[in-house]
Design a protein around this nucleic acid. Sequence first.
DNA 1: GGACGGCGAGAGAGCGCTCTCTGCGACAGG
DNA 2: CCTGTCGCAGAGAGCGCTCTCTCGCCGTCC
Lengths: 326, 326
Amino acid sequence: MKRVTLEEVARVAGVSRATASRVVNGASSVDESLRHAVQRAISSTGYLPNIAARSLVTRRADAIGLLLPDERRMDGDPHLASVVSGVTRVVRPLGVHLVLMMTGPGTRERALSDLRCGRLDGVILVHTDPADPVPGQLIEAGLPVVLAGRPLEPMPITYVDVDQTAGAALAARRLKSLQCNRIATITGPQDTPAGQDRLAGFLAEVPDAVVVHGDFTRQSGVAAMEKLLRCCPDVDGVFIASDLMANGAIPVLHRSGRKVPDDVAVVGFDDSSAALTSEPELTTVRQPITDMAAEMARQLLRQITEPRSPTMSVIFEPSLVVRDSG
Amino acid sequence: MKRVTLEEVARVAGVSRATASRVVNGASSVDESLRHAVQRAISSTGYLPNIAARSLVTRRADAIGLLLPDERRMDGDPHLASVVSGVTRVVRPLGVHLVLMMTGPGTRERALSDLRCGRLDGVILVHTDPADPVPGQLIEAGLPVVLAGRPLEPMPITYVDVDQTAGAALAARRLKSLQCNRIATITGPQDTPAGQDRLAGFLAEVPDAVVVHGDFTRQSGVAAMEKLLRCCPDVDGVFIASDLMANGAIPVLHRSGRKVPDDVAVVGFDDSSAALTSEPELTTVRQPITDMAAEMARQLLRQITEPRSPTMSVIFEPSLVVRDSG
DNA sequence: GGACGGCGAGAGAGCGCTCTCTGCGACAGG
DNA sequence: CCTGTCGCAGAGAGCGCTCTCTCGCCGTCC
């Protein structure tokens, strides 16, 4: 069970270590016969390159980090699997590892030092707290970083997002086309870009909409809907800024004796799994999470391989998924 | 923006590289004054050890892999965040990285070679396909590995699981205490240990229960409940072997005009987020996923640090979470 | 007083790899 | 025929760290 080194491969193939290395790394200028000899030696010895040794000289870790909020904030977040899946799709064929880090005491600092000491080549930041100084430090240090979602304050950083405003407009037009007269919205938290944009996009289409605030959680969906029914009992169409909130809100409608969508049409946002567990299934605005995650990975890898490439952001178009709720 | 090396720290502190290394790694036998000098040098230079170099000589990657089934099978799986969170809790304080790998073509082989070439110190396998040869290869090679859940075939491998049988019994006794007379169960897939054990544990308590098969998915919960109502319309208590299936099954009950729990009591299994998105909220058997994940991490780390330690498995006790459905 | 033991610091040999630089042979051009 | 050029393989110098081995120093015991 001893390790096979390049040295040994070279010896078996009867070439120098340098030539063996050239073959392993697919360098062009190696004679065909030697190349074959080396390849045979590799498979006969079962050689696997030692990543640490390679990494020591190339100064690449071939690993990127995915920084997530902690479990509480991820709770019931149906995105995680999709995000991981999208990133994986891009990253795996290149042999790059995906390192997961959940926010906890000191995580972001740890990520920073992992980056600085060459253990990570770059990071993707998800659900970043606007007050968090780490993204700023990262770009200042010129380290590769991509944000999931537009930052609250404009900053010279690459991010990938869906056009939240356009998505909300999609929802608004759906409710209008359903001939709803008394239209309301339950918003997300107004200290986040997504929360702000979804409200703004909706109000642009339905300026006289009734607005009740939520914070994207199921819990807040329940509370907001109760409040809405109290202050506006004749509501017949509502845009709820996250599926999770809609999931909490719909039973409130049912308990009040209203039928969805006959009495009140409901449109959500996210097309998360919560949209399918609602009764009736939710009409919602879809964000292509997996594709967005893949794009984040691509952007990050680009930054890593071309350190001086321009920072640019990518905005995906949302689409409306029509189901039974509105 | 040049890197600081140990060499430089040593120079600044006026000691040898060896001594600086001893301080960094907390070795005991260093004079207090020198130790302080080195620590000052470290913070004044902003030194961070290069992991690749260390890893090259220690032959430890300080990284473990988490092998997951692909997105399709994870779909709506509410566990992922909890698992990651539990593993993270154990692993982070030790500076060990968590590398996520979603099953795709060649993933498991890639994981195997990552292990062999020293890029990963060990792996946690989740939702392993019973036919998968990789776990066998891993233990054969003596590589550190822990399974989430009992393997289908007994094998000398460390795993962490909840007592599925006891959990099903808990559900059974709950339904009996509710005075249900006509009791049924919707099972998980019978080619998985969890599916088998939950059925067996339930039947041990309610031998005459009506049995309808599902496969843990929401979809199958819908179908199974429809079938159940057809063949056994007077059912008044049902144990559904996953919350996700229950989530699909409850609306079927509602549509048939039955009230939950008044006409039919429902008990699920998992205490996943699906239990909260059901209407009414689900009474369910709880598995302490986060704690189990933490234990998996601990077991894996033990195997890594003590290669010849005995293989042992850990079984957690389930508990019943009583909510509104039964 | 000399030999010995123990403790703590330094020297230096790698770990396995990449990559530059050198050298050698073949070929073309003057 | 000699020099210049080019292509390709080998030699060897690190990359930054750990860890063994050696050595010097001091205290102790005979």
